[in-house]
Nucleic acid binder design. Sequence first.
RNA 1: UGUCCGAUGGUGUAAUGGUAACACAUCUGAUUUUGGUUCAGAGGAGUUCAGGUUCGAGCCCUGAUCGGACAACCA
Length: 564
Amino acid sequence: METNNQKEPSAAKSLNFIHEIIEDDIRNGKNESRVHTRFPPEPNGYLHIGHAKSICLNFGTALKYGGKCNLRFDDTNPVKEDVEYVDSIKEDVKWLGFEWSGKELYASDYFETIYEYAVILIKKGKAFVCDLPAEEMGKYRGTVNQGGIESPYRNRSVDENLDLFSRMRAGEFADGEKVLRAKIDMASPNMLMRDPILYRILHTDHHRTGNKWCIYPMYDFAHGQCDSIERITHSICTLEFEVHRPLYDWFIKEIGIYAPQQIEFARLNLTYTVMSKRKLLELVKGNYVNGWDDPRMPTICGLRRRGYTPESIRNFADTIGVARRDNIIDVSLLEFCLRDDLNKHASRVMGVLNPLKVVITNYPDGQTEEIDAVNNPEDETAGTRKVPFSKVLYIEQEDFNENPPPKYFRLSPGTEVRLRYAYFITCTGVLRDAVTGEITEVYCTYDPASKGGNSPDGRKVKSTIHWVSAQHAIKAEIRLYDRLFLSENPENATEVEDFKQNLNKDSLKISEGYIEPSVKNAEVLAKFQFERLGYFCVDKDSSAESLVFNRTVSLKDSWTKTNK
RNA sequence: UGUCCGAUGGUGUAAUGGUAACACAUCUGAUUUUGGUUCAGAGGAGUUCAGGUUCGAGCCCUGAUCGGACAACCA
């Protein structure tokens, strides 16, 4: 049974540089030795594997040090955000096995307080209302190589600023007409410090506050303050926010509130994998995929449908570590983590994707027997199940080859193989379609003495293949998805067109296959081919927590190589 | 041409002044009722470069090179 319970803090698991900082802080009694982190997504898209790294880091760190971790939605831009995203994010975090401290929180919960913080800054002469249109403001800001120049509105009186700001809130001005800016330093080499915008006018309904507000704080004027209000001790974020840190600290200091510490780490990059919310959104909106949870998507829900387990993703996050240098992780490591988990926990089932009929000529007509099959060879407690066996079976097309190349061990004319858990069979002939000449049936004889899969005479076979009984098996539409998104070039998963083309090619194949009848309640069945994993998952009701195992399709074996 | 950040096998992560470790990937061999798993083993970096400090430097200092981030009324 899969559990969503949080794990105990993993004892003395490898430290990363963030843990070192935290341990120092604990040792020095900083923040009364509290540890309080937060995961702060903007609800403008679904979570992906990159977020999983951040989730595991933030929640995992809190767990490790007996602290707390908040889930806070950074909902300061109503034009992009939606409750659909809020709901999916909550679900995905829970599915990964984490529990946030108390109720989920929202930046919008603090809009009133943040407004008051702005007023404090105005009163201190540290903020002003600016009438420069966006385009002009861009020019005034200068470039990375050249300082900016001060806004002509920069020296408005405190009273005038106070008046204007309250009228902004009251809705007296149109979008873009005015903004509130901090008064810092237009000559700063850090562009972010050149009188950044604090509030903009947006006459847009917010998914939580409705039409209560028509001015909204910018990220920089909200994030640190939210951290402070929640008394977050360590505000862990990705490297691109590094240049924001001086501003983060400036606001905290000028407003005079509790100071959390922002710590940045390098975000996850995966080979062949597109990790941009914007691009993923484009694929969903353009119907290139069947929604955010399409198994080809690198989203958490896509991975879930693909058969990934929460445990495997947590292990992955743990294995890749945390550092400040740019990285690109080989997607095979992610797949290894899944395989590792599945090998221990997934129950196995037999099935065929592309059926080939096999008739056991010396097996009695109409007879059926129940074969005992092990559910998980690596876990005795998983028990066994009964699988029906009869005269007519289906095997995988690629498990038969009339003219076998060297080192092909599976069924071919004259060779003997084992039907897993059942009998040894030997191929005696084939039936061809009169017109096309294609093989439609394979004839075999079985050795009744080999029941269960072993011959009393100790005879060995080189291969074991999967099978289902034709009259008992569940016929199912089987969907083969390519693995995560993918560009031919491992590092070039950046061009939208590149992976759109990939998707259109053959990232999803549908075939009519058969699954053994022990798989109950199977409505939609899907096979997700994990490259080099060889598992297939059964997507029971397309909400799909389940995954069942299979047979092996090794893409690296010599047989495959020499035949491609 | 600015500021900040980073640089260790193919890919990641470790080594906290004492002669580079672990995982994935790759390649062998054994076992195996999944060509999976498991087990055993191999190859592969002398730590971007150049100086300096030190008995001793991947770790400290200086400079260079390369890579990344920053000029949204996005987060």
